[in-house]
């Protein structure tokens, strides 16, 4: 092997600026604050325990793997913490903490470092962790508790399997994963990220737009329900937009976002799982290298003479 290990490879565009990976990571964590606050408000101290467990486990796993691989330890860049927090926000509030630990280790070790670490991972690590838990502990991962101050005192199924008023879905007074219930808090964080330019508007707009159009056509419960219920809003703003695992070109991002929306609706409306956000983003993550290959701008001068 040649001595290229010291080079930092990052995805395009290679704009020189003050921004560092670390800075962006912490800004995204800042954008998650409203969501974390909402999860604490609706689900109580259990939310804090889950967030802490996942965040700390993810960071410890990062240190352990980097030590084992003899790589420099980059714990301070915040990426592991961010992965842990995002994972926690996709988990059911009453999940046993040891399962959260397990999920975080899988997210960092199998989701990220197996592929070579930050920047090389094909799949969103937090989603890998969640997929692993979903497939391992089906029952625990689909038991939702009703939030404090909720209308229902007992709700065992995700709202996707039942009925819920759109206003409750928007504010977050429904059962669901920690961070996915309050569309309001997610939108606040999302607007901040858009304002700072850390996420591309094309992905959330393309994703949510596709779901809105398709559910108007085929969904029984209508577009407004599908937009605000389940993990769609959180996934579209915080997970599909992950810089490492989304395409680099504008056209590619449209394709990626529409693909996510399409698969989500297929799983939600026709599939066996009530929620399709997780697998839709993972499946489209897998297509990103291909999308990038076909959407990279053509070399100047090779454009077909057509008009």
């Amino acid at each position: 092997m040649d001595n290229t290990l010291d080079l930092t490879v990052s995805s395009a565009p290679h704009v020189k600026s003050e921004e560092t990976t670390s800075n962006i990571m912490y800004q995204v964590i800042l954008a998650l604050v409203p969501v974390m606050f909402a999860s604490f408000y609706f689900f109580g101290p259990g939310a804090i325990y889950l967030l802490l467990t996942c965040g700390i486990t993810a960071m410890l796993s990062e240190v352990a793997v980097q030590k084992l691989r003899g790589k420099p330890v980059t714990i301070n860049d915040g990426s592991a913490l961010l992965t842990g927090l995002i994972l926690a926000l996709t988990l059911p509030p009453d999940l046993p903490l040891w399962m959260a630990v397990f999920g975080s280790v899988v997210a960092i070790v199998l989701g990220k470092h197996i592929f070579g670490g930050l920047g090389y991972n094909v799949f969103n690590p937090a989603l890998m962790g969640r997929a692993f838990l979903t497939l391992s502990y089906v029952v625990s991962m689909t038991e939702w508790t009703a939030p404090n101050g909720g209308v229902d005192t007992l709700s065992t199924a995700t709202p996707l399997e039942g009925e819920a008023e759109v206003i409750n879905l928007f504010i977050g007074r429904v059962g669901g994963s920690l961070g996915e219930t309050s569309a309001l808090a997610i939108l606040l964080g999302g607007l901040y990220l858009l304002y700072k330019g850390y996420i591309d508007w094309r992905i959330p707009v393309g994703y949510l737009g596709t779901v809105a159009v398709l559910t108007t056509l085929v969904g029984e419960q209508g577009a407004s329900f599908h937009l605000f219920a389940g993990g769609l809003m959180f996934g579209a703003i915080f997970m599909a937009t992950d810089m490492v695992t989304s395409p680099v070109t504008k056209k590619g991002r449209w394709i990626f976002a529409i693909g996510c929306g399409f698969i989500t609706v297929i799983i939600r409306v026709f599939g066996n799982y009530p929620e399709g956000v997780l697998f839709s983003i993972l499946l489209m993550n897998m297509c990103v290298p291909l999308i990038d290959q076909y959407t990279l701008p053509q070399i100047y001068g090779e454009v077909k003479a057509n008009g």
């Binding site: 092997m1 040649d2 001595n3 290990l5 030590k67 084992l68 691989r69 003899g70 790589k71």
Partner: peptide, 13 residues
Amino acid sequence: DLFGGTAAVEKEQ
């Protein structure tokens, strides 16, 4: 080597 820091990297190289 697992805990030896740079030794593993050198080997890899």
